[in-house]
């Protein structure tokens, strides 16, 4: 078989969904970011185990704002997922709508999280619990904001007609990042908000 037969067929050209290197690069980024949050939560539980209940604040983190906020973030993921699906069908209007809804829900999350922060009786400087609480939620906020910039860019690019039913890898790549940010929130929420009530 000295003829390079296996290449004698049509191959896709350029940035194509999950064949794009960018997709693989995003997976690598997500792996390393996931590790970062694992270390953050590890640090949290390290203190938790060493010090026990006395380390947590008097008033345990409440669900009044954080509960609905979690739902908001999950809904934004659904919107982005839908946008991505419509993108693959080449439906530009729905794709933009989905991204816009995802973006708005994400912004709502940030605002509510701001109120949640303002509500706290401790600060990053008042105790080691405070340092960790604000570092962990702060890191997550930073990722949400990065995600919002991604969603906004995707929305702009979609509106400018950069994508069609086959050329839309950035949407796929950006969407997976957003889902990741949401998944991280679930881990953060569970660790910081739910586990204190379980002990």
């Amino acid at each position: 078989m000295s003829e390079p037969l296996i290449i004698r067929r049509r191959l896709p050209v350029g940035s194509m969904g999950k064949k794009a290197n960018g997709w693989w690069g995003m997976l690598a980024l997500i792996a390393t970011e996931a590790a970062l949050f694992a270390y953050l939560l590890f640090s949290y539980f390290f203190f938790d185990v060493q010090y026990g209940r006395g380390w947590l604040p008097e008033k345990l983190p409440a669900f009044r704002l954080s509960g609905p906020n979690t739902v908001i973030l999950l809904l934004s993921s659904v919107a982005v997922w839908w946008a991505e699906r419509e993108a693959r069908k080449g439906n530009r209007a729905r794709q933009c709508l989905g991204l816009a809804v995802g973006l708005l829900l994400g912004i709502a999350f940030v605002v509510i999280q701001g109120f949640e922060w303002a509500d706290k009786t401790f600060t990053p400087f008042s105790s080691s619990y405070g340092s960790l609480f604000f570092t962990i939620t702060g890191f997550h906020m930073a990722h949400v904001i990065a995600g919002l910039i991604v969603l906004a860019s995707l929305l702009l690019w979609s509106a400018l007609g950069y994508f069609d039913d086959r050329r839309n890898a950035p949407v796929t790549i950006g969407a997976i990042y957003w889902h990741f940010v949401d998944a991280v929130w679930l881990a953060v929420f569970f660790s910081l908000y739910v586990t204190p009530h379980l002990r």
Binding site: E33, Y39, S43, P124, S127, S128, S131, L132
Partner: peptide
């Protein structure tokens, strides 16, 4: 990420008086 985080915490302890590593104030 482990070392980046560790150094960030150290810098924050030094710069902002957070309490990750300071034993006197509940750090580890």
């Amino acid at each position: 990420p482990a070392v980046s985080l560790a150094f960030l915490m150290m810098w924050a302890d030094r710069q902002f008086n957070t309490h990750f590593f300071t034993p006197e104030t509940g750090g580890q």
